[in-house]
């Protein structure tokens, strides 16, 4: 799976730190993503995972360290610029445009590719009409890919939870990003829903040749789809490796279950082997 193109990372984060007053939310965080990677970022609540996402997408400006995307330093860029460069994200608590219909939710993501000026829009000239028609058709095709085409006129907030998630992912992908950040996509989903989400993530990765970094709490999902996992605790990276390496890492168990738990789980495993 590691198809390295000239050894280039699509996302290269080095020693990123974020200080909120006296609280060091993230400390010396580094991660590298190669094209077509699917990596996971896990950790107990408050470990700083979402803060990392917020720094990558420009919601926060890091106190130290740098973020390189496609060999360009994007540290301190504005959110919308980062999106326009090709990083899209979803949110932990779904952030759709709640009172707009499904089609408009996706069409807003196309704004950067609209291809007509405000003057064209006000005059409603031919150029506007052609561009707008093309844009709408693209959005509709896109909804069809995500099985939401029959919902296009529905108001986003009236959709069932699972479809809202799907719409949020669809909207993030509509802007044609090169890197997709998913913040707890399986939150609040039942097992059946989360396995269909796993299929969806696989599908996206293959169809759009996407690089994906995801935060997830459901171990089943993370262990099931990620090739490489980074574990954070109290703002620091405590482990990195394949799912099986992570599962047997005593520091990870300790971070999740408290001190002493590692020894206990080791004992438990040995007994199981015997």
């Amino acid at each position: 799976m590691n198809e390295t193109t000239n050894g280039r990372y699509i996302l290269d984060i080095q020693e990123l730190s974020m200080q909120f007053g006296g609280l060091r939310a993230v400390n010396n965080f580094s991660i590298h993503l190669e094209p077509h990677d699917l990596q996971g970022l896990i950790g107990p609540n408050g470990a700083g995972k979402t803060t990392v996402f917020n720094m990558i997408t420009g919601v926060y400006t890091p106190s130290a360290g740098q973020i390189c995307f496609l060999n360009e330093n994007i540290t301190g860029f504005e959110s919308f610029e980062i999106n326009q460069m090709g990083i899209a994200r979803t949110f932990q608590n779904i952030r759709l445009f709640p009172n707009l219909n499904v089609l408009d939710n996706v069409r807003i993501a196309y704004h950067t590719h609209a291809g007509y000026s405000l003057n064209d829009a006000i005059l409603h000239n031919r150029h506007y009409k052609n561009q707008e028609k093309e844009l709408t058709e693209r959005a509709q095709d896109f909804l069809a890919v995500f099985n939401l085409q029959d919902r296009q006129a529905e108001i986003a907030k009236n959709l069932p939870y699972g479809e809202q998630r799907r719409l949020e992912i669809a909207r993030a992908l509509a802007a044609e990003p090169k890197l997709l950040l998913l913040d707890e996509p399986a939150a609040g989903m039942n097992p059946a829903e989360s396995s269909s989400l796993m299929d969806l993530i696989h599908f996206i990765r293959e169809k759009f040749d996407m690089t994906i970094l995801l935060i997830e709490h459901q171990m089943r999902v993370v262990m099931g789809i990620c090739e490489k996992i980074t574990v954070m605790d109290f703002g620091e990276v405590i482990a990195r490796g394949t799912p099986s390496e992570i599962q047997s890492n005593p520091r990870v168990v300790e971070a999740y279950l408290g001190p002493g738990a590692a020894a206990l789980s080791e004992k438990f495993r040995r007994r199981k082997v015997e």
Partner: peptide, 20 residues
Amino acid sequence: SSYGRAIVSVREDEIAGMAM
């Protein structure tokens, strides 16, 4: 137009709008 939708997106959710 797309500009109008962008204007409305600011009302709906600024952070999501920025992220889009």
